Amino acid sequence: MPLPPDIRHGGNKACYSPMLDYVKLPTPEAFESSEDYYSTTFHEMIHSTGHASRVGRKGILEPSYFGSHEYSKEELVAEMGAAFLCGYAGIEQRTIGNSAAYIAGWLKALKNDKTLLIHAAAQAQHASDYILNRKRGEGEQIDEPIA
């Protein structure tokens, strides 16, 4: 991943701090399985791609409150991106149930936005491509922000 955030371990909550640009995770031993640890890590790393120094995303660049449309959309992007990365890592069969339930919960919060799933999937793919340092097709740039 180009320009990765700092990753810190400790505490009992996973989060990404956009202001300080770091991912905080419980220690790997705190998770039920290594797949759960990596799925959570991927989720927070997808959030970190929203930072202005990476791909930039409204849900990270602009402050939003828990449960707001932008917050909900960002959570959907992060979980979909984490699912893509779990698939790439070959651990999706161990994490798909949790991911599906998490995504379903955020989709309920966004039920009135008919285009959301397509936009979120595109942003999640863009974020996971950034983490994997995959270049886009000719004429496309991977580092341009998605609104």
Results as ranks from 00 to 15, higher is better:
3 L>C: 03
140 E>H: 09
15 C>R: 14
58 K>T: 08
141 Q>D: 15
66 F>P: 10
80 M>L: 15
70 E>W: 13
145 P>E: 02
10 G>Y: 11
50 G>R: 00
74 E>P: 02
82 A>D: 05
22 Y>L: 03
119 H>N: 01
119 H>D: 06
76 L>Q: 04
51 H>A: 10
110 L>F: 01
40 T>A: 12
115 T>L: 02
27 T>E: 08
115 T>C: 04
52 A>H: 04
12 N>E: 06
80 M>V: 12
111 K>I: 15
45 M>V: 13
48 S>R: 01
128 S>I: 04
20 L>S: 09
147 A>P: 15
135 K>P: 03
15 C>S: 10
62 E>F: 11
11 G>N: 10
108 K>W: 01
108 K>I: 05
135 K>V: 06
51 H>S: 02
73 K>P: 00
93 Q>R: 15
5 P>N: 07
76 L>I: 14
23 V>I: 06
67 G>Q: 05
16 Y>M: 03
85 L>N: 00
18 P>G: 07
82 A>S: 14
27 T>V: 12
53 S>K: 11
96 I>E: 07
25 L>A: 06
134 R>S: 01
19 M>K: 10
88 Y>K: 13
6 D>E: 09
4 P>V: 04
112 N>G: 15
14 A>W: 02
99 S>Q: 08
120 A>S: 09
118 I>C: 13
58 K>P: 07
111 K>H: 14
50 G>A: 09
85 L>F: 07
136 R>D: 06
142 I>K: 10
134 R>F: 11
52 A>V: 05
63 P>E: 11
3 L>P: 00
127 A>L: 03
45 M>W: 00
138 E>H: 15
112 N>C: 13
8 R>P: 01
78 A>Q: 02
69 H>L: 12
8 R>N: 06
49 T>R: 01
7 I>V: 15
101 A>K: 05
94 R>N: 09
21 D>I: 13
55 V>K: 10
43 H>R: 08
116 L>H: 06
146 I>P: 04
83 A>P: 00
66 F>M: 07
73 K>I: 04
4 P>M: 05
29 E>N: 10
81 G>I: 00
43 H>V: 08
22 Y>W: 12
